[in-house]
Design a binder for these strands. Sequence first.
DNA 1: CTTATAGTTAGCTACATGGCTAACCAATTA
DNA 2: TAATTGGTTAGCCATGTAGCTAACTATAAG
Lengths: 135, 135
Amino acid sequence: MANQLPQLDQVFAALADPTRRAIVMRLCAGEASVGELAEPFEMALPSFMKHIHVLEVSGLVQSEKSGRVRTCRLSPDALVGAEDWFQHQRAIWEARLDRFEAYVMKLKKERAAAKRLSKTTDKTTNKPSKRKGAE
Amino acid sequence: MANQLPQLDQVFAALADPTRRAIVMRLCAGEASVGELAEPFEMALPSFMKHIHVLEVSGLVQSEKSGRVRTCRLSPDALVGAEDWFQHQRAIWEARLDRFEAYVMKLKKERAAAKRLSKTTDKTTNKPSKRKGAE
DNA sequence: CTTATAGTTAGCTACATGGCTAACCAATTA
DNA sequence: TAATTGGTTAGCCATGTAGCTAACTATAAG
């Protein structure tokens, strides 16, 4: 489990801006020229180009110029890499929740057993459950 | 398709920093005090606290102070929200890929048909080069 | 009561980011 | 060849971010 590629820094930073997320969403539907991409935004072209550049540096977008028009396309690897990070965290989180739940269940049973013991009149099934550890 | 909740801005911005990602990863394994969280980092406490604050504003982390110790825990909703964004984009992307593949298949068949046809009629300039399909 | 612990507040610096205008190529098109 | 189109470069400005030190507050612990 080595440390995350620094790529993640750039990818998340790129996605932190609504303009850039919109560009990514647009490119999910297919490639487009800079002009086409810029058209919906009320922003000077040089400003818009900076966003494109940030996306390229992050690896989310590739572009290529032919003639005088630059065509941009999504390069999904970086996107998938970031998604993986989430899934990994969620896996750890859920494993923890499972352990926690198991722990709570164990507590419940122990408390129930203690209660039964204190009553001395009631006898019921006392089965030890699988314990998976606690925190 | 309304615009994304502004939450996403903060969540992605929060995750764009390796220190903060490390904190989130640590909190996936269970809650911890600020001191415990700060310990692995060679950073002055006030600097570290800023990171905690960014995480709280983003909704990724909640904290609560009792006595003189502040305990932090992950609040997974924001994390899940961001993960959803990825899955949504990927769904669109994959749908597009499917359409594209279908389109290429159709092209292939048409070209094969055209080739068969031209072989019987015209033998002069038949270019068998692979050309990239466009949209 | 005194001291140590755990954060917190205030205020500073340096650099990154997001926006702009103006001027500048380099391919098309007329 | 001249004009237009599609991007690009350069440079400016305001704001935001990440780090620091120093000084402060409030709860434990001795």
